[in-house]
Design a protein around this nucleic acid. Structure first.
Lengths: 195, 195, 195, 195
DNA sequence: TATGAATGAGATTTCATTCAT
DNA sequence: TATGAATGAAATCTCATTCAT
């Protein structure tokens, strides 16, 4: 028995379910996506999904945590602590935007989970904590007198929701948005929070 | 029978359904709210709901349009066209914030509709158009050189999503927010979009 | 709205479900009887069953209690307290036997519930209490020195299980049994418990 | 490979499945015990069970026959044909009671099979035949004028169901029963069937 | 208008059985 | 022999919608 092969296979199947579910959940909402549809699109049987997840809710919860983790890992990868505050923020902010541009499904799904009560409450209680390095940058900036001394939630509210909104509107063809506009958006972000 | 009384009654029942549905949809999501639950909480029978709405989707759609209209009516009431740009924007913006603070259910429901595909697509295609007077203010501001010459979607993205986010986080007990903080938030909004 | 008619209808439907379920449960066991089969045989839809019972287990529990109550009501009807001990016991005992002869489905179903863990535990905790008048007769007999002074559970064990067994074996064609044999069986019962 | 060892292993595995299945079937009923649960508790894989039994029903059938055989073997072991009728019956009867006291799982399982249609009909058609030596004792007793000349089914009904009932009620904590009460119970059995 | 019992398609979940390894 | 992931038919239960009253 080849353990590596075995594990790979297992991961592949779970990964396949994650990907298929994410696609359908993002497009139609998790409440309007039957498990049978996920199975069909994934080319596996319903029972197989219940082999990896104990219930539909379990799949939603785990997918949510996984996407949040993927997102965190992505935006902080290659993070250089020595950069000056604004530049450090700029890099992470651009990483976030890139993630959403390149992963619209993840973006839609997270937005849905946050707007509704789909995900079981305990899972999201961590709040901003998953963004700890970014919070530290902001705090530093405040201590240096570069960033306004307002609550971090407020800094967050002007840093992330606006670009998130723009990209979702763009995807929904409600407005056009090109990648080169990112710098411009960051300019507005910075104007809002800078001292 | 007195026609006026009759009409009043009719309106009352429809209104009752709207209010009950809004409450449940906001709390649990429309997909997870059976029509029977709406009827029960409203103290009427399921059949009655189908007298006023042709389907559950129809109720959702009409509720969505109604809330959007209530919202528009509220934020533009007593609107004084002669005020200077910043002050005009400030008044409308404070109206929006007040609406969300006083009507958290409406706020949650609209956020859900926008984050998911609950509402039939055609209904929202109007996009920003319902905010026409506000768009005009922004355009004026741009012509006067007071507001940055960026797309109105971008102005919108920095004007509304941040405060919307803050208020929802506050309702969900993730951060504290007092009404007197509104002026501060508006400061950040203005800093972001002003020339 | 005719309340009586209304109630009658409602009762009829619930009664219909009870009867159909009892028939199938007795024949095939409740675990091997899908709700859909009950619905089909009753000529109603699955949903209707869930209108009257919250779950399959609820139907089983309520059917169990109902049959137990029907049984109790039947065996103690027209009960004459003034009869001498042996005669009083004889009448009730013959009533029991008659009930099982005339209601083999009820008999099978109760036997199943008692032999398995089908019915939720709390429901049967009453134990012998539903047979209170019979217990009183036995106690009287013991005080008069007519019946052996052993635990009532033991008296019960020689009074009911034997005839129950015989009738079930007879129904299953494992032995022949005619109604006129009842007096003979009662003779053995009495021989076992009499002082 | 050593054939004996091999066979031993084989037997052990089959025996392991029997024991595990019996335990779960007795506790939860065979219909409510998934094969996977048997496998898990036995520490083997589902596939292995299907190596030894062609289906779940096959396992139930064979377990039933095995338990019946174990029971027969146990109650007739060391049986001395020369004992007088009452004493011979008494010994076998005490063996039965001992078996049920020491093997409550077997007792529960057999009771379940007899009360429901779990076991395929043909298997139990033998009826009382497995108790042949006991039947012979009873017949002898009848010929000697010691035992009432009633059908053997009736003799059986007063010999076994009462003690079976008492022991099951005792296990279910519905009444207390000590091993020294057995002699008393046998007294009632004998009183019922003796001429 | 108003009712709410009834429907039945469809959703979630379970589980006996198979089969590639 | 032994495994256990995979299957998919079937079970339980839900709920939007209808219709007789």
């Amino acid at each position: 028995m080849n353990t590596r092969k075995h594990n790979t296979k297992k991961k592949d199947k779970k990964q396949l379910i994650y990907e298929t579910a994410l696609r359908l959940f993002a497009e139609n909402g998790s409440s309007d996506t039957p498990i049978a549809q996920v199975a069909k699109l994934a080319g596996i049987s319903v029972g197989t999904i219940y082999l990896y997840f104990s219930s539909k809710q379990d799949l939603i919860n785990k997918l949510y945590l996984k996407v949040r983790k993927d997102f965190s890992d992505f935006i902080f990868k290659n993070f250089n602590k020595k950069l000056p505050t604004k530049e450090a923020f700029r890099q992470i902010w651009l990483n976030m935007a890139s993630y959403w541009i390149e992963n619209p499904r993840e973006s839609f799904f997270l937005a849905q989970c946050d707007a509704t009560q789909i995900v079981e409450k305990d899972l999201e209680k961590e709040g901003l904590e998953t963004l700890r390095p970014l919070l530290d940058i902001w705090t530093n900036g405040q201590e240096q007198g570069i960033i306004k001394r307002v609550s971090l939630h407020m800094i967050y509210a002007f840093s992330i929701p606006p670009i998130h909104h723009i990209l979702r509107a763009s995807k929904a063809k409600k407005c056009s948005f090109e990648e080169e506009d990112l710098e411009l958006v960051f300019q507005l972000v910075w104007d809002s929070i800078k001292e």
